[in-house]
Design a protein around this nucleic acid. Structure first.
Lengths: 225, 225
DNA sequence: CCCATTGACGTACGATGTATGCTTACGGCG
DNA sequence: CGCCGTAAGCATACATCGTACGTCAATGGG
């Protein structure tokens, strides 16, 4: 009689910022960054697109929230005696986090805003702590952080986007490469190395680079004492 | 009388694939990746959007062309006696190339296709050659390439997108950080290092990481002979 | 019980990539 | 010299995107 209070169900529960952000994150992980649309997020919440704007200022604000949310997933490794092992753990955890949400790098790449939220800074703290303990000056720690961060970001970028053809990039084989590139004869080193690039285990490859960096760092620290 | 053959001028010259790609690249460099629109590229060429489709299959094809075009700008460094210095030169040139087109990383990040064009493979050859000369096995060279490549890509990504706040990220200062983050007291290392991260010269920072990697590599090679 | 506040909705606009046809200019042939 | 097939540019149209704006319903305090 009074208009159907039963019909329009609040079964879908009240919306709020966290629910909106989580829906966006789930969608991003499941279908990729380009699938994250205001309309699609709203649909997953059983709601119209414009309703989201009651909880996020605009799409950029929503994506900021997603970044922050991902960073909250950082699992601080258990403490270590050896600063070198602590640094290794931190590097591995950063990679785990980025790989757990394969669109994160793409999101960061198009977002161009410094990450200064609490969750992010706590991740930084975790990475910086072993370096300071190793006796690096703040300036050296800053440089080292950028170096390790750059390596991890770049590695995961190439890994998830298949930049140079990895194991899962499917159709690129040594033979198909020969067919693809007419003058492969002029590129002997590429011809020799490319098969290995396609065949390698990404985890082992990541450890290789991490070892290289840590070895360099250890040499620098040792040469001082 | 006969419809104006003079009016519609072919003064604008005939279109072709290279002209279309170059226009897109210029636009990307000048106004950023998101400004590269079929309509905008067409406008710069004095033409309608749909005319571009006579020369590129679709937008992805156009952007593939842009990537290839950028890679053609790689300037092979002059040969070096020392493999270590040759590797350093190659790394610097990769970074120069990426920095010369600040939207390149963003483009690569959203493009997810292996780069197997001639120009790209020639850049790889240039980077691989010193490694092989240093005595690395193909497998090690593959791992090393991914490591250096990851570092360079990631570093330039963080550099151009200001991921953690660089010198040109403006409004982030040690004080504003304190205001931004309430519990900065719980992050002593971040508090100590952040000012340095904002103040550092990117070029010096890049060299720092490159040194670290090369030192690690040299140790690995030396420990074998 | 009434009404102000809040949050969801519907509509609408401009921008984007691109499918589909139409039109125009040019080059080889009689 | 004219004809016409073909290539290339054009105009229109559509689906999808972010989001501005106005409306409407439900809720909670007086």
């Amino acid at each position: 009689m009074t208009l159907e209070t039963e019909f329009t169900p609040k079964i879908r529960g009240k919306l709020n910022r966290v629910r909106v952000i989580d829906a966006a994150l789930q969608l991003m992980d499941a279908q990729g960054l380009e699938a994250v649309t205001m309309r699609a997020v709203a649909r997953d919440l059983g709601v119209e697109a414009m309703s989201l704007y009651n909880h996020v200022h605009d799409k950029e604000d929503l994506m900021d929230g997603v970044i922050e949310r991902v960073m909250e997933g950082f699992r601080r490794p258990e403490p270590r005696e050896e600063w070198l092992e602590a640094a290794r753990d931190a590097g591995r955890e950063w990679r785990r986090l980025l790989k757990a949400h394969p669109s994160m790098i793409q999101l960061l790449a198009e977002h161009s805003k410094p990450m200064t939220t609490t969750a992010t800074l706590e991740c930084m703290e975790c990475a910086l702590s072993p370096m300071i303990r190793a006796g690096l000056t703040p300036r050296e720690a800053a440089d080292t952080f950028q170096t390790f961060g750059g390596y991890i970001f770049g590695f995961v970028l190439m890994e998830t986007r298949g930049t140079f053809g990895g194991p899962e990039s499917g159709d690129i084989t040594p033979e198909s490469l020969g067919a693809l590139v007419p003058d492969i004869g002029r590129l002997p080193n590429v011809a020799a190395v490319f098969p290995e690039m396609c065949a390698t285990d990404p985890d082992a490859q990541f450890e290789f680079g991490l070892d290289l960096l840590l070895a360099g760092l250890q040499a620098k620290v040792a040469g001082r004492a």
